[in-house]
Measured scan of single mutants.
Amino acid sequence: KLLSSIEQACDICRLKKLKCSKEKPKCAKCLKNNWECRYSPKTKRSPLTRAHLTEVESRLERLE
């Protein structure tokens, strides 16, 4: 599967780190437990900047 097509777990399953069936409108866990089942939009991760990478590398060197 391509990364862009990976389905996201519902908010509660993601928060509780449960295996989500990803069914809509309610996944199996939410249906069974009568929880409100919501699927928040995916958040875009910002790409690493060179400055951040350099900072992490220098912190790693100090720890070694």
Rank of each mutant, 00 (worst) to 15 (best):
R38L: 10
S4P: 14
C13H: 00
T43K: 15
L15C: 12
E61Y: 13
R38F: 11
N33C: 06
S40H: 05
K22Y: 06
K17P: 01
Q8G: 07
Q8F: 12
E36N: 08
R14Q: 04
R59W: 00
H52M: 10
R14A: 00
L3I: 14
E55T: 11
L48M: 06
W35E: 09
K26D: 05
N34D: 08
T43W: 09
E61W: 09
T54C: 11
E57T: 01
L3R: 14
K32L: 03
N34V: 13
S21G: 03
C20Y: 04
R59N: 05
C37Q: 01
C37W: 02
S5N: 15
T43D: 06
S46L: 00
K29S: 04
P25A: 00
K16R: 11
K16P: 06
R62T: 09
I6C: 14
C37E: 08
E36H: 05
C10I: 02
E57R: 00
K44I: 11
L48C: 07
Y39E: 01
A28G: 15
E36Q: 15
N33H: 13
E55S: 10
S21Y: 09
T49P: 10
K1H: 15
K19W: 03
K42T: 09
I6H: 14
E57F: 10
P47I: 02
E36C: 03
C10V: 00
K29E: 03
R14Y: 09
H52I: 02
E64W: 08
E7M: 15
L60T: 04
L31D: 09
L15A: 14
R14I: 03
C37P: 13
K1S: 05
L2Q: 12
K26L: 07
S4I: 12
A9R: 09
K24D: 04
S21L: 02
D11Y: 06
K29T: 09
A9S: 14
I12F: 11
R45L: 01
L2H: 12
E61T: 02
I12N: 15
C30T: 04
Q8Y: 12
E64L: 07
K26R: 10
S40I: 06
E61R: 14
L31A: 11
V56I: 03
C13K: 02
P25L: 09
P47W: 07
L3D: 08
R50H: 02
I6P: 14
S5D: 10
R45D: 05
N34S: 13
R59D: 01
E36K: 07
T43F: 10
K19T: 05
T54G: 10
K17V: 02
L60Y: 01
C13S: 08
A51G: 06
E64R: 12
K32H: 05
V56S: 04
L2D: 10
E23M: 09
D11R: 03
R62L: 12
R45P: 04
C30N: 07
C30P: 05
I12T: 15
C13W: 03
C10M: 05
C37N: 00
C37K: 01
Q8C: 15
K19D: 05
K19Q: 01
K24V: 11
I12Q: 13
P41A: 10
K42S: 01
W35R: 13
S4M: 12
R14D: 08
K22Q: 06
E23K: 08
S21I: 00
V56Y: 11
P41W: 06
C13M: 03
A51T: 14
K42F: 03
T54F: 01
S4K: 15
W35N: 08
L60M: 09
W35Y: 09
D11C: 08
T43M: 14
L15W: 01
K44R: 11
L53C: 03
E23W: 04
E64V: 08
S21P: 04
S46W: 09
K42N: 01
E7Q: 14
A9F: 12
K44W: 00
R45K: 13
S5M: 14
E36Y: 13
N34W: 07
C27S: 03
L3M: 14
H52K: 11
Q8N: 11
K32D: 08
I6Y: 14
P47V: 02
L2Y: 10
I12W: 12
E64D: 05
L3W: 05
W35M: 12
E55L: 12
K44Q: 06
I6S: 13
E64F: 06
K29C: 11
N33D: 01
T43G: 03
A9E: 09
L53K: 00
L60C: 13
E55D: 09
K1Y: 07
S4N: 15
K29V: 02
E55G: 08
C10E: 02
